[in-house]
Design a protein around this nucleic acid. Structure first.
Lengths: 338, 338
DNA sequence: TTGAAAGCGGTACCAG
DNA sequence: CTGGTACCGCTTTCAA
């Protein structure tokens, strides 16, 4: 017996068809507007669909059409204010077109990242968006032969890979320029991980800008951080312990700045009265720290929408072209003129 | 011609089968260990799979087996430190079993939430996890007839709905108890949205605890917030403008506390020297505010792992039973004894 | 305009 | 142990 009539929970298109006395093809055509359907049949079909509360099975559709209308996102952590802002952007950009996001985290570990991308491909996502991470460009290029990719925070070129980054170097220059303009000359920098592209660019911007202003780059004033609060805290402790003289800190990112700020607080060193701080990223919470943090804003939401748009373009929707606001210094209250 | 031999990008099981000179059934059996396969065939199959770099199509599998091994998550925002912590927990709990998460955001809007759950079901997730939100229990109950649900932060009961919440009332009591122990009697409270269950429980805890200590509940000391930083800021301004006398603030949640703290900073009111603050949630960043925030810790990660486990149980894996640490007060440095 | 039928890529039942 | 085959739910020729 054809089990079309069984009361098996979900209704299928075939059930609708037989209940309406038409062929499945007709129902499909009605649903997708693929071809004209006589008013009469259209009406009965509509009614039956209503009665049976029929909802198409996207799985079957995907299998047949070869597209899941899903884009995979490889992020580094599900709870990073940094990446999540971009994800919101991606989602906003693609949901109109009926795409959903399948998100997986790589936790900054190349192997895990590759594994996750593999899972994403296994689930037949139509494309994958990669938010930085540690995989090699080679690996990404390889993956791109299996699925279209847009990668943020790196530069890989290929037939089916699009990528772009932000000018971290310039952002750092602006930050340090500002500090110098405010009269600071002994400026410490807490770096990010040495193997992190953005971290290196920011460090370079710091050095070059000091040089530009003919300020000696004192190696003792550059201390390593890890882009986490704890690293910022430790770095400042180290700076203080080694008895360096400085009036400002350029933190590799906002989290680092938070940690640094706490370290100063612990020693009753006031910000910005005694020491000024500038961060990098402009996380939402930087608006509410005490004092509100002066920082370099990364337009992460727009990064997301651009990733989304580029992806849609590769997938054959929408037209190319991206529009990214530049990095910009957001002046709040953590820097004092001296 | 059967297009099994075509060079169409991805390899199928049928291609593997014919290349190995066996039936698709055998390849399938080998892949899933469904039945014994002779060593000889097993070896050729292995080799062919390797050569052709075959990866099973999860879509086809899902269609056939009626399970996508995907669990849908309805969160409120992709960039909420609160919900994301729980999502990490869910992911950790289910990924071992091969489940992935399909995440959608409802933005605290009942209609949007329902729409998202509808999308989730359309994509045939095996179950959906609902993180609070504004839908009615009735709606959730209705959905649960179509898909197993576990809901956090509400109490719905049903054949295929599991739900649980945390004891916000007790948490609030602990917080206020602590404040009173530290000598505070004029304690202001910044509430959350009035229609928010947790917000109401926290308010009740505040009132009852004051009463318990025979402290008058001054209505002027209760000001509305919105669980956002801006609400906390405004609330404190209002409190200050109306010239109330108070020595401590119990903030509806950590974000509110951040805003409150900034408002005080703006007026050079010191924390905790002049005014003490306690928050609720214990977001990660509360460890690094200045001063570090004393707050009621919600074990959100564990909430996530429990959601994950409950879901797996409903789906027929793992055994029931949850284990949730209670809410607990984390004493840091934002409260002063007076 | 409409229906019959062939798959999309797997899984599992039925024989052998 | 192995092969043949029906079928999961939907889309799309091909003919009528």
């Amino acid at each position: 017996m054809k089990n079309d009539e069984s009361s098996s929970g979900t209704t299928t298109l075939n059930q609708v068809a037989s209940a309406a006395g038409v062929s499945p093809a007709t129902v499909s055509r009605f649903l997708n507007g693929t071809a004209k359907v006589s008013d009469e049949k259209r009406r009965t079909i509509e009614r039956v669909i209503e009665e049976l509360n029929y909802k198409p099975n996207r799985l079957a559709q995907s299998l047949k059409m070869g597209s899941t209308r899903t884009i995979g996102v490889l992020t580094q952590s599900l709870e990073s204010g940094y990446f999540n802002r971009a994800m919101v952007g991606i989602e906003d950009a693609v949901k109109e077109s009926g795409y959903a996001l399948l998100i997986m985290s790589g936790h900054w570990h190349a192997d895990e990242e590759a594994e996750r991308v593999e899972l994403l491909i296994g689930r037949r996502v139509d494309g994958v968006a990669i938010l930085t991470g540690n995989m090699s460009d080679r690996q990404i290029l390889d993956f791109s032969r299996r699925v279209p990719i847009v990668a943020f925070g790196r530069k890989v070129a290929g037939e089916r890979v699009l990528s772009f980054g932000l000018d971290n170097y310039r952002g750092a220059c602006e930050a340090v320029d500002f500090l110098v303009e405010q009269g600071h000359r002994r400026i410490a920098m807490i770096t990010g991980p040495a193997d992190h592209e953005d971290a290196r660019a920011r460090l370079a911007g710091y050095r070059d800008t000091l040089a530009k202003h003919r300020i000696e780059v004192d190696p003792n004033l550059t201390v390593p951080g890890d882009f986490q609060e704890s690293g910022g805290l430790l770095a400042v402790n180290q700076l203080l312990a080694s008895n360096q003289r400085f009036t400002a800190i350029f933190a590799g990112n906002d989290l680092t700045a938070y940690g640094a700020r706490l370290a100063l607080y612990r020693r009753s060193i006031r910000v910005p009265d005694d020491i000024s701080i500038v961060g990098f990223d402009d996380l939402h919470s930087s608006m509410y720290t005490t004092p509100p943090l002066t920082t370099v804003r990364q337009p992460l939401y727009e990064v997301g929408t651009n990733i989304g748009r580029m992806m849609l373009t590769m997938l054959g929707h929408g037209q190319p072209g991206m529009d990214m606001p530049p990095l910009s210094l957001i002046v709040r209250e953590s820097v004092r003129r001296i």
